[in-house]
């Protein structure tokens, strides 16, 4: 079982020192990535999803940020303790990332070919000619028509969806073990979102890549993820496999997220549900459940102490005072 685990994130903490105070953007996050599987990380904007994944790659802008604790074990070896040279061996090679806004994530001054070839040459030791062939092959896989021609163009000559395809092709060009996709469809047209998700799904399956899919909407992860982590204010509040999350959500926040997914089988004219209140300000957060002001089940204890993480069954846990005081 554990042989399948490629990456273990253990109690990861990432803080930012801001003028307003200490921002604990990620505060004790743990999860495992298994070979070829897809993990969804879901939460409202500002909950620390991007920071978690930038920390895995040690890409936190510093100052103001730093990794305040935890381990990121890739095949048992802690990435956070590696030298810069060792980490560069991993970035783009073992773990690659694609980001939210394909319009700004490609360098506007360099041809697609330059940007793709540099990665392949760096990690695969191919010469430029072979690297270009490989790049063209990846673009073709990613569904870009006439890739031999398109590869010599600049990013502005591509539409948003096409640019995200280029990003995917580039990210997968060195056969990474893990692809981190940070809200890959949020900036795209609705019609294109499904195509991009389908592409990630299909390519990762074909290449055997594990995927971390970050999103703020449970609807996006529904069909794609094996496991789901729900994040709130820098912590994972519920972790379970996809069926359990949708079938019997435990945390009130997860229930809220599920209710706010638009559903086709409901034909009421009601407005789409949204969780009342605002996402919390996590600067100088006191010890309490940060969700209590928005929670309909809030008790006194919720205002005084962060709930312990209770294991419910293997691989399933929730951090909420509704489920006992831990065990």
């Amino acid at each position: 079982m554990t042989d399948d685990v490629i990456l273990q994130v253990k109690d990861l903490k990432t803080y930012f020192k801001l003028d307003e105070g200490l921002l604990k953007a990620v505060d004790g996050v743990s999860f495992d990535i298994k070979k070829g599987r897809t993990l969804g990380i879901v939460g409202e904007s500002g909950s620390g999803k991007s920071v978690t994944n930038l920390a895995i790659m040690k890409l936190i802008p510093s100052p103001p940020g730093w990794i305040a604790g935890g381990e990121v074990l890739l095949h048992g070896k802690d990435i956070l303790k590696m030298s810069d040279t060792e980490i560069r061996e991993i970035r783009g090679n073992k773990i690659s990332m694609i980001f939210q806004d394909p319009m700004t994530c490609l360098n506007p001054f360099l041809r697609i070919s330059t940007q793709m070839i540099e990665t392949i040459v760096l990690h695969q030791g191919l010469d430029k000619k072979a690297a270009k062939d490989k790049a063209i092959e990846m673009l073709k896989l990613a569904g870009i028509p006439a890739p031999e021609k398109r590869i010599d163009q600049y990013p502005h000559q591509f539409s948003g969806g096409m640019r995200q395809r280029v990003m995917i092709a580039m990210a997968l060009s060195c056969n990474p073990e893990i692809l981190i996709a940070d809200e890959p469809t949020t900036a795209l047209d609705v019609t294109i979102q499904a195509q991009i998700l389908e592409l990630i799904n299909e390519l990762s399956e074909r290449l055997g890549t594990a995927v971390i899919l970050i999103t703020h909407s449970l609807g996006v992860v529904a069909g794609m993820c094996d496991e789901i982590c729900v994040m709130y204010a820098g912590r994972i509040v519920e972790k379970a496999n996809a069926d359990q999350i949708f079938g019997e959500p435990k945390h009130p926040y997860t229930m809220g997220l599920i209710k706010s997914v638009p559903r086709l089988d409901k034909t009421t004219k009601e407005r789409l549900y949204s969780i009342p209140g605002q996402p919390p300000n996590v600067i100088n957060l006191p010890d309490c459940c940060p969700f209590f002001p928005r929670c309909e089940y809030a008790k006194d204890i919720c205002k005084q102490k962060y709930p312990p993480v209770s294991g419910i069954s293997t691989g399933r846990s929730v951090a909420c005072w509704l489920y006992g005081g831990g065990n």
Partner: peptide, 27 residues
């Protein structure tokens, strides 16, 4: 240096020297 495309360049494992020379300076 704070732009998204420089973050992409770093996430690909390029060395800081190449990031600066190839990805930062021109723009």
């Amino acid at each position: 240096l704070r732009s998204d495309y420089v973050r992409t360049a770093r996430s690909k494992g390029l060395s800081e020297g190449i990031v600066i020379r190839r990805h930062v300076l021109k723009g």
